[in-house]
Design a binder for these strands. Structure first.
Length: 869
RNA sequence: GCCCGGGUGGUGAAAUUGGUAGACACAAGGGACUUAAAAUCCCUCGGCCGCAAGGUCAUGCGGGUUCGAUUCCCGCUCCGGGCACCA
């Protein structure tokens, strides 16, 4: 056995061993419980980043732990290979996105392999491969047949200079990122998937997911946004015709306080009024500028203009003026809202700004209504009662809503309605590097589906986009085709699918039997029913809503098409925190922002060690410290894992990632700490080397006090480690391993007594197994070298022994008036009275009770005694 | 702006989730070994008072519940994630 820890050598050898034994190939087996451990697949951006290392190490720790616990583990990997960055890289380097993507995949695959993850590479997939995206197209056509996919207009960011559609990310402060031109909203046709058909099920089924974090379920529930309210109409007459302006509200109890209505700029009523009102037309035009992002809409100044059109209040008949408001969304409800300034914050601000009447219709007893000071209760559903509301006066929220709903229903002007915030999923993208939408446009037959037997519609792989729109529009060999219906010359659809489509079902594709995959005769087969749902899904918290919701939707569609027999794709979800690093920047001469990598700056600290500033190492000038943020190329604060692996080895990288913070929390990067992880692994190796001759010592029937105490300590730490593994809290599992080594080293150093050899041998075998999911190469090698067995992968997971844990006395905390004043020792299993007596008799208690009698004694068995005087 | 998280020593964090706040590490300082360095090992390490024993304050800020609060409740503040075309 080597005396020195040589990570490069042992990691290469261990990986070669696992390869040659096909150790991680997953084969369905009815006799063993399955464990499908799924990590979010990476976008092949070029090289692995720390977020990937963190994500996949978590998955690998879970996989290896479950394998040793007897599960049949499937842990696959693949590539989310379509997307915008490939087009950007293509523009920059004149390389087709396909080549760039496949090259990146090859490099990143080798990086993943060097980290020693227990992956079944035979199931690898890439979403940009025609054999994969064929099934996106196939399922899209099934959705079209069922009416789940449909066509309507969508609003996009339009760059008027490049004549192209921009992603939200490409809009910076309202301007196109390349041209700097003011972005406009533009309506174009596109395909939508009716996720709203499943809104109720997607919401209700959150309750069937106890293995999901509460916060993710809350976010999804809020996103779906089910609200029960009233959809009602304001009647009006226009050009002699009777019309209705429909609105939706969850606060029907405030209807009597309506003093205006507001419609979206795209609302027909706005369009109509603008025909005879140039000022209004200009305002509507202004509303069309700016991005389509909700965050922008919500933070911009609320503006409006009256239309001069009046509608009738449906209950009082009073005239109510209609305004156009830039904050009203056409895509939500009917694109119109009622305005009740007294009981809605936004309406209040709007009314104040434009001098619209504010009429109180809700009162809370004991509270007075004043325009500056009723925000605490103005919308209180619990305590509020109707006032100034005619026959509804005195009614509470629910009674008022019921009465008003009934009255409006009787007039045919309204009914209770369940409304969702969730909108249908627009999947058309005017981009090249994505899955082609399998539609052909024929002058005679219109939009025609590509027949199944002609799938996949293959994307040409040699285009290089230039930023001025989709290059497919210039590819005659792609565009020109025969109409599948009439056979006449036709034109292929050039829009491609949202990349969220690709990632909405890849988890099921991994499960497909390799033979089915090879023949590619089906999207999924019965194997997906065996492995699915994934027992553990691991990925960044940034996917809490969109990706996870789309995947749940897609699964339900596949279920309803009879393709799979499960309702939900992911039984347990772990949302890892982001990996953050410090951000340093400086405004340059041109007014742009220049970023500096952390290694390019020196930090200035105050006496307490707090960061107070930073300077650039190169020029000594100050730079702005921007706090911490997710590692990204654009902010230049990423750390390359490759250097880490090359210097210290994969086990150190993995150990540090697990030790640095619990998986769900954000992880602030620090170079220090990596050294510490490396030091620990070296000590593990050195200890193995030191006790190699004792590793076979057999445990005697009884132990002397010293070795028994050491054994108890190890088994206690094991108990804690197992508990923490159950909580997915791997940082304390790593620290338990460190504590075990500290205890073993100390005993080994302090006593040469041969009688403790069996405890050292057993303790180290426990340590190696507990550590092996985190640092598998090291533990695999030591396990074999010390002769514990052939294969640590096949070793059973250790469980603490009750016989090793017993003790006769225990220590309790002694408190007087809730303050820690000392400790007492009592027999294990001592009853309350005995503990109380021992506590009262103790010196510390006597001192701090100051002669006063005990009013109350709180005894928490096994923990503490609190004497209240 | 809206929704969801988080804030504990110089730093990352722990506290079996209402019961000894700071385990385990990192950094720093001191020492041993060495011709020297690296590596390794040992000691100190939240603030204040004290020679010490010990006391006292302290888990972002302000309140509350409790014998007892990092943990539960209310308000604020700062940081992170998401907001539907980044993935």
């Amino acid at each position: 056995m080597q005396e020195k820890y040589l990570p490069t050598d042992i990691e290469r050898a261990a990986q070669a061993h696992w390869n040659s034994t096909k150790a991680f190939r997953a084969v369905a087996d009815a006799k063993r419980p399955k464990y499908y451990c799924l990590s979010m697949f990476p976008y092949p951006s070029g090289k692995l980043h720390m977020g990937h290392v963190r994500n996949y190490t978590i998955g690998d720790v879970l996989s290896r732990h479950h394998r040793m616990k007897g599960y049949n583990v499937l842990q696959p990997m693949g590539w989310d290979a379509f997307g915008l960055p490939a087009e950007n890289a293509a523009m920059q380097n004149q390389v087709p996105p396909a080549k760039w993507t496949w090259d990146n995949i090859a490099y990143m695959k080798q990086q993943l392999q060097s980290l020693g993850f227990a992956l079944d590479w035979e199931r690898e997939l890439a979403t940009c491969a025609p054999e994969y995206y064929k099934w996106n197209q196939w399922l899209f056509l099934r959705m079209l047949e069922k009416g789940i996919a449909y066509k309507k207009t969508q609003v996009v960011n339009w760059d008027p200079v490049d004549q192209t559609v921009l992603a939200n990310e490409q809009v910076i402060e309202g301007r196109g990122w390349r041209t700097g031109a003011l972005v406009e909203k533009r309506e174009i046709p596109g395909y939508y998937l009716a996720i709203t058909h499943y809104a109720d099920e997607l919401l209700a089924a959150l309750d069937t997911l106890p293995g999901w974090p509460e916060r993710v379920k809350t976010m999804q529930a809020n996103w779906i946004g089910k609200s029960t309210g009233l959809r009602f109409a304001f009647p009006y007459e226009l050009d002699g015709k009777a019309e209705k302006l429909w609105v939706f509200t969850t606060r029907a109890d405030t209807i009597m306080g309506v003093s205006f209505c507001a419609v979206a700029a795209e609302h027909p009523l706005a369009t109509h009024a603008a025909q005879s009102n140039p000022q209004l037309a200009a305002f509507i035009d202004e509303c069309k500028h700016g991005s389509v992002m909700e965050a922008d809409l919500a933070t911009m100044e609320k503006k409006g203009l009256p239309t001069g059109i009046f509608v009738d209040h449906p209950l009082t008949g009073a005239k109510v003026e209609v305004w156009v408001g830039n904050y009203v969304l056409m895509s939500y409800g009917d694109g119109a809202v009622m305005g009740v300034p007294a009981h809605d914050e936004r309406d209040f601000a709007f009314a104040r700004k434009y001098g619209i009447a504010i009429e109180q219709v809700i009162a809370v007893e004991g509270q007075s209504f004043a325009l500056d000071a009723w925000q605490e209760w103005y919308a209180d559903k619990q305590r509020g009662r109707c006032v100034n509301s005619g026959r509804y006066d005195g009614l509470g929220y629910e009674a008022a809503v019921d009465a008003i709903a009934a009255d409006l229903a009787a007039k045919g002007l309204g009914e209770k309605k369940v409304q969702f915030r969730l909108r249908d999923w627009g999947v058309s993208r005017q981009r090249y590097w994505g899955c082609p939408i399998p539609i052909v446009h024929c002058e005679e037959c219109g939009s025609v589906s590509v027949p199944d037997e002609q799938l996949p519609v293959v994307l040409p792989e040699d285009c290089v986009p230039d930023g001025s729109g989709n290059p497919l529009n210039k590819r005659a060999d792609f565009l020109d085709c025969a109409c599948p219906k009439c056979g006449k010359p036709a034109r292929r659809e050039t829009d491609t699918m949202d990349t969220f489509v690709d990632s909405s079902w890849y988890y099921a594709r991994y499960c497909v039997d390799p033979a089915t995959r090879a023949a590619n005769t089906a999207m999924v087969d019965a194997s997906s029913n065996h492995w699915m749902p994934a027992d553990q899904y691991i990925g960044g918290i940034e996917h809490a809503i969109l990706h996870l919701l789309y995947s749940r939707f897609w699964t339900k569609v596949m279920r309803d098409l009879g393709l799979v027999n499960y309702d939900e794709p992911f039984a347990n979800l772990l949302t890892q925190g982001m990996v953050l690093n410090h951000i340093f920047s400086r405004r340059n001469d041109k007014g742009g922002i220049e970023y500096f990598a952390p290694e390019e700056v020196d930090l200035r600290r105050d006496e307490d060690g707090h960061v107070v500033g930073a300077t650039c190492k190169a020029d000594g000038q100050p730079v702005d410290y921007g706090g911490v943020g997710t590692m990204s190329k654009s902010k230049r604060n990423g750390v390359d894992p490759q250097a880490l692996i090359e210097t210290y080895g994969a086990d150190t990288a993995r150990f540090f990632m697990m030790f640095a913070s619990p998986p769900e929390q954000t992880l602030e990067w620090s170079d220090s700490g990596v050294e510490g992880a490396y030091r620990f692994l070296k000590r593990v190796w050195a200890f193995g080397f030191a006790i190699q001759s004792q590793a076979a010592a057999a445990m005697p029937a009884t132990l002397a006090a010293g070795p028994a105490a050491l054994r108890r300590e190890i088994h206690l730490l094991l108990k804690q480690a197992n508990y923490d593994l159950g909580k997915l809290q791997f940082n304390t599992v790593a620290s338990a391993a460190m504590k075990m080594l500290n205890a073993l080293e100390k005993a080994h150093k302090e006593s040469a007594d041969a009688s403790q050899a069996p405890v050292l041998a057993e303790g180290f075998s426990i340590l190696l197994r507990v550590l092996s999911p985190i640092a598998p190469h090291l533990c695999h090698t030591l396990w074999t070298e010390l002769g514990y067995g052939a294969e640590i992968l096949a070793a059973p997971w250790p469980e603490p022994l009750e016989t090793a844990l017993v003790q006769d006395e225990q220590e309790l905390v002694l408190q007087v008036n809730g303050k820690h004043r000392g400790n007492i020792r009592v027999k294990v299993g001592a009853d309350r009275t005995a503990i109380e007596a021992a506590a009262l008799a103790s010196e510390a208690a006597q001192k701090f009770m100051e002669g006063k009698p005990a009013k109350k004694v709180v005894v928490v068995p096994g923990r503490l005694v609190n004497i209240v005087v």
